[in-house]
Design a protein around this nucleic acid. Structure first.
Ligand SMILES: [Mn+2]
Ligand SMILES: [Mn+2]
Ligand SMILES: [Zn+2]
Ligand SMILES: [Zn+2]
Lengths: 125, 125
DNA sequence: ACTACTATTGCAACATTGTCGCAATAATAT
DNA sequence: ATATTATTGCGACAATGTTGCAATAGTAGT
């Protein structure tokens, strides 16, 4: 499947680039009017397939997406933690990678690691 | 709030105890007939509040619940990883705890860590 | 036992999320 | 220009989890 360049895709990409946090479909929909929900999801999932972004599943079950900044294109993995603030609900990527060791015979696929609590801003009240 | 002992609660607890894996609402509903969905969720959430069980959010957004076996009642935390097999879909608790370090000013709440891939059984084909 | 209190349940309704099929549109290469 | 097909919009859908409210039932006190 060859990807095509479309205005919609570019808009979503621009929003992703403009954000310091991982964002949900909702945030994107708020920033672009008149783009279908299904389309946004399809674009985001394509970004993930292409190794351009990665997906974080929060504790409320919602999906958040962030651009891959420090990822190698080949051997694409995201064994870093994320943090979601219970107050401002922002989701951020942590830098530090964690060591993952699996039992014998297991094969690794993906890692979804999310801490929650209060972020620096919100903990300070 | 004082908890009460009810048949429903006992049934759910029995099922949780009988399972080696973390289970979803669906599994419980399959094993108990005639218990309302909302009730099951409420019971499970009460277990979590009471430190009897803990909740894992999978990559599909679904909630899984497992009894706390190695948890201290006080200082209740679950910084261990979980693994969900993409084939058999079972969710298991890993023993090894992971080290969590947060940036200055952040306060820890919960940790939800899930690996996915193929489990020992399914990888062997 | 009987009663009072209230935690728990069932039911219905609801919001939200994410996916899918299909026809229409538009990006790309020839 | 034209053909090919990736992408989009629309609608519908399934699934998940939560909530309000009235009915039920556990518990403690008498
Ligand atoms: Mn990340
Ligand atoms: Mn666990
Ligand atoms: Zn915050
Ligand atoms: Zn398996």
């Amino acid at each position: 499947m060859k990807r095509r360049n479309t205005p919609t895709k570019e808009k979503v990409l621009t929003i992703l680039k403009s954000q310091d946090y991982a964002i949900s479909h909702e945030t994107i929909a708020d920033n672009i009017i008149d783009i279908n929900r299904a389309t946004i999801y399809r674009i985001l999932n394509r970004f993930c397939e292409d190794g351009l972004a990665h997906k974080i599943v929060a504790e409320n079950g919602k999906q958040y997406f962030a651009l891959c900044k420090t990822c190698e294109v080949k051997d694409h993995h995201h064994n870093h933690l994320h943090f979601q603030c219970n107050n401002c609900e922002k989701v951020e990527c942590f830098k530090s990678e964690i060591n993952i060791s699996l039992p014998e015979g297991y094969s690794v696929g993906n890692f979804n690691g999310l801490l929650s609590g209060l972020c620096g801003n919100c903990a300070a009240d």
